[in-house]
Design a protein around this nucleic acid. Structure first.
Lengths: 162, 162
DNA sequence: AAGATGATTGGCACTACACAAATGATTGTT
DNA sequence: AACAATCATTTGTGTAGTGCCAATCATCTT
């Protein structure tokens, strides 16, 4: 199973991913607005659910977002009591970010609402296919949750020193 | 095989899609810059390759983009001779947009360059899985190519005739 | 002829960002 | 203890991507 015959025709997912994500985001925005959330909030909450607790910096790397913007994002989430920031016991400069119970519930609520959106945007996929897509997305992003710092060549060489 | 045990837990792809697309877009931007392209251009070119010819308005709907912005986007592409605008014979108000040969080549070139980016962003997926992902994305977006006018609520029934 | 439609241009507004600089709290080092 | 580095925060600046509105010209429909 390691023959890999190379399937290199028009085989690039980048544009399609961009396209589909945009379609999804457009619908998602309006569906989420009543909950006081925007897509970025949903992403952050999702990340936070999948990582028990994480330093604010780690979150920034995971989200590939500038540190200062993470502050603003968390301010918004904290204002709604969806996350908490507490000082790290080991290094009191750090803030450990965690999902609150309310945050968990809000996220579940948001996901419930999004079912309709996904049904619409992914209408051309069967249930099984949507499951497969979800699984692929989950797997493709899983390692970013665990060690977001894995940078490489094409990477920009900031924040390299740990 | 039609039992469908319903897997409805945290089963929403929207956030992951958003997240992965962002990761991809960040890398894509710098990889595409040397070619004088930005992600939006790539999406448009990809759409155009998959639709032999399309009215400018259809393109706007396909891209879910405001009409005036499509104009600007096409201006940029046309300035690089990647697409052509020609008057529709049936309705000379309309512009038919088509990929040029140069456009086709540029797109192929872009996709070649993007291989490295996808290898990086999708590093956690096997080749087979990337193929599966591509196929799912393609299928999920296919109908938008053919009849972008399919709106759920307000369905406008123009541009149907070829 | 009159009104609707497609493309175009220009302008205004807003969001999502990145980036830089300054501050306060804290840590680690010398 | 003094100093440098680090984390979070705030504020300010700049840019890209878009939506939306108004005006214009060409063209189609009635």
């Amino acid at each position: 199973m390691s023959e890999l015959p190379v399937v290199q025709p028009p085989y690039r997912s980048a544009a399609l991913l961009d396209y589909l994500a945009r379609r999804m985001r457009l619908r998602t925005e309006s569906a989420l607005a009543p909950l006081g959330l925007r897509p970025r909030h949903l992403v952050a909450l999702t990340m936070l659910r999948d990582t028990d607790s994480i330093a604010q910096q780690g979150l920034a790397e995971m989200l590939q977002l500038d540190g200062t913007n993470v502050v603003g994002l968390l301010n918004e989430l904290e204002a709604q009591q969806l996350v908490t920031r507490r000082r790290s016991p080991e290094d009191r400069r750090r803030h450990i970010v965690e999902l609150t119970q309310a945050g968990r519930e809000k996220l579940a609520q948001a996901e419930f609402v999004l079912a309709a959106v996904e049904d619409y945007v992914l209408a051309d996929l069967s249930l099984e296919q949507r499951g497969a897509l979800f699984e692929l997305l989950r797997q493709a992003t899983a390692s970013q949750f665990l060690h977001p710092t894995v940078e490489c060549d094409a990477a920009r060489t900031d924040t390299v020193g740990v």
